[in-house]
Amino acid sequence: MLEIKNLHASIDDTPILRGIDLTIDNGQVHSLMGPNGSGKSTLAKVLAGDEAYEVTEGSILLDGVDLLELDPHERSAAGLFMAFQYPVEIPGVTMKYFLRTAINSVRKYREQPELDAYEFLSLVKERAAMVELDTDLLDRPVNGGFSGGEKKRAEIFQMAMLEPTACILDETDSGLDIDALRIVADGVNKMRGDNRSFLVITHYQRLLSYIVPDVVHVLVDGRIVRTGGKDLALELEEHGYAPIESEHAVDA
């Protein structure tokens, strides 16, 4: 269960998040929608522990563990996974080496035995199939020269490898064609389960036709201004964000 309470965060003294309350029970998929600049990606990065942002108030608990007390790698080990909107290319580090280091670091932290080469490769094979990812990509540098679709599939693949309990998908649909979108969504749906919660951040309703959310939130100016069922996404698709934005315009 992911519990965000009264979360305020700023970058370079400019407040971006202005008091977010959001609780996602295990087994649930929540969607966070909102216009550009509303703070959606900031929330994702703050959850993951990006030091560029300063949390000025509030708390984030994952299964009772205070994430704000943890470094990014510890949050990952504690069960948080954030799929990046723009996965970073890292020349010189192969995907396989990176992933094995990541998974064994996480397992070590969780006091699980490390995977040997055979176990690791078996798991890679199984999980790569979930997102129809060509395992040859794993011999390439991290995200190096991947197409947009490959990058996003690789993110979901990593998510499947690390078996998190809370998954944050930051605009995973951006830059995807319809086939890639379906593959990515299928991968996510296969991971849905009673012990896992999802926060799907998106600008468009499109992804939510494939990953059907239990709850939809609308973020405007760093605050959640509306919460509803999956129909709320359709309403936004039809009318756009403008009516909600003008309704909740921040007073100067």
Binding site: G49, H73, R75, V88, I90, P91, T101, S105, V106
Partner: peptide, 28 residues
């Protein structure tokens, strides 16, 4: 590169190991 460092850390790689990986990649 701070972005690369954060990416590795966000996937569970401890800071010191992430730095090591990036230095190794540079020299590699």
């Amino acid at each position: 590169d701070p972005e690369a460092l954060f990416y590795l850390q966000a996937r569970g790689v401890p800071t010191s190991a992430a730095r090591g990986m990036l230095i190794q990649a540079f020299a590699g």
